[in-house]
Amino acid sequence: MSRISPLFEQLRTDKRTALIPYITAGDPTPGATVDIMHALVAGGADAIELGVPFSDPMADGPVIAAAHERALVHHVGLRHVLGMVQVFRQSNQHTPIILMGYQNPIEAMGIAVFAERAQAAGVDGVLTVDLPPEEANTAAGIYAAVQIDPIFLIAPTTHADRIRIIAKLATGFVYYVSLKGVTGAQNLDTQALAERVRAIRQDCSLPVGVGFGIRDAPTAAAVGQVADAVIIGSALVRIIAELGQGDPATLQQKVQAFMTEIRSALDRS
């Protein structure tokens, strides 16, 4: 079993909502990533989504697409990302890590080779944005064999019959994309969100994480009322974009402070 299910069990006991930040590996530099990951945990992150840079991040908005481009300036690929996870694991064995990215870099390495190396490096889950359940049977089987959870997206457009298909393949948790659109989109309707999450729970027993459109402590707190996990991406990546060229210690402090703020809001709500 990966670290993901035990985490959610513990959180349920503690009546807490998981906080899962997203960063793109290699942004702003390959050397900065592991320190930023530790800062996220110090600020209250329960798990980390680590983006694998891809030349064509079709499902990402301008903020995260730019992060991919910054990482690619340094030629950060899947091999390097696995190396970063390995280094992170030298001093942190408990925080689940979910790789988030696109299918092509994984296929270029070979799915089976990737699964084996990811497991060895200490990866817990893999979310492949452009691999819907219809195309995911082979990959999901390979990941399951090495105790890596295949994480799937559920969208506002996903009907109940598809939620059931996803629920059969997914383990760990499911990721509800709270808005139509790309990452970093605006205008979250929390009431509609609550209804959707209730509907998902009828067809899927896994914990439900919610992402897209959560940009600050108040939105995080509102989402935390209905979700098992709150996922923050673009708001965090924007901080990295703004401070990435400066002093690494300042960046880590800001990242940690931002996490602490969200964490407090979640724990108060």
Partner: peptide
């Protein structure tokens, strides 16, 4: 095949 994000599947 259909290798797209979930939002586009429907």
């Amino acid at each position: 095949g259909k290798y797209v994000a979930e939002t586009l599947m429907e």
